[in-house]
Computed example of a mutant assay.
Amino acid sequence: MQGSSKRESFHVIHKVPSGDSPYVRAKHVQLVQKDPEAAIVLFWKAINAGDRVDSALKDMAVVMKQQDRAEEAIEAIKSFRFRCSKQAQESLDNVLIDLYKKCGRIEEQIELLKQKLRMIYQGEAFNGRPTKTARSHGKKFQVSIKQETFRILGNLGWAYMQQENYVAAEMVYRRAQMIDPDANKACNLGLCLIKQTRYDEARSVLEDVLLAKLPGSYDCKSRSHAEELVQELDSQQPGQLLSSTPLGLSLEEAFVEGLDRLMNEWTPFRARRLPIFEEISPFRDQLAC
């Protein structure tokens, strides 16, 4: 009994599953022996043996990313996700998004983020449930559809900024702010407006951060970012004309038109759409004007 208790205590402390399967050995090597390259080899063996494939593929991809083998991780997920359960697909998509970001594959990152938004609009995210259980640093917590939507829109806005498509990024950040106002995303929205030389609008957005009107306004990083952007505004030449055709306008129009088409396609699913999208639907009409 005492030996059994010690083994159970070991697994709890090191967060290693019990047993002697290929997946368990891979986790032991990863977490206890701390040998990532050997762990990757064992995760491959677990996948080929059909042992906890959902977890093995995700864990292997994460370790590969840590070892600067992100491109390999992308190919591994694409090649073997068909062996994983339906319940694991969303989680694998989240890993893919991080891998695309690390590799600078922005187009693919954007397409996958849009796909996740489609699933939310159609009521298919979280396997149809309003919340899901997530993990961070070994702790479990609940994530709502509203929180997930806000997170995805933030990532999508950032991806558009990497493409220097500031008009599309502005549209996405404005939608995110309608769901859950946030100082960090307000700073990004302000930057998008500055890049379009819409200085008065940018100043108004940034002042909301500096005047602590938004959640997160007291965060040192967000406040410093807002102050830096206001200084950039103050340094602009007085009397500079606003651009009548901001960079990326045609791309924004295409994005809005595509979103409108998707919304029309989603109409049959209206009964399945979640309340948060009824709240932000009016913003689509503003964009179409």
Rank of each mutant, 00 (worst) to 15 (best):
Q2C: 03
G3W: 07
K6L: 15
E8L: 14
I13Y: 15
G19S: 04
S21V: 08
Y23M: 02
Q30T: 00
L31V: 08
V32M: 11
K34E: 15
P36G: 10
E37K: 14
E37Q: 14
A38N: 06
F43W: 04
W44Q: 15
N48W: 12
G50K: 07
M60W: 03
A61Y: 02
V63P: 02
M64D: 01
D68I: 00
E72I: 09
E72K: 06
I74S: 00
F80H: 15
F80L: 12
C84A: 10
Q89P: 03
L92W: 07
N94L: 11
C103E: 07
E111Y: 11
E111I: 05
K114G: 06
K114Y: 06
Y121P: 01
G128L: 13
S136C: 08
H137E: 14
K139P: 00
K139M: 13
K139R: 14
G157L: 08
M161A: 10
A176N: 00
I179C: 03
D180V: 00
D182A: 02
N184V: 04
N184S: 10
A186N: 05
N188M: 10
L191A: 02
I194D: 06
Y199W: 10
D200Y: 11
D208A: 14
L210F: 04
K213D: 09
P215L: 11
G216Y: 09
C220K: 14
S222G: 07
V230T: 10
Q237I: 14
L241I: 05
S244W: 02
P246M: 05
E252D: 07
V256E: 01
G258E: 04
L259P: 01
M263T: 04
E265M: 02
I276F: 01
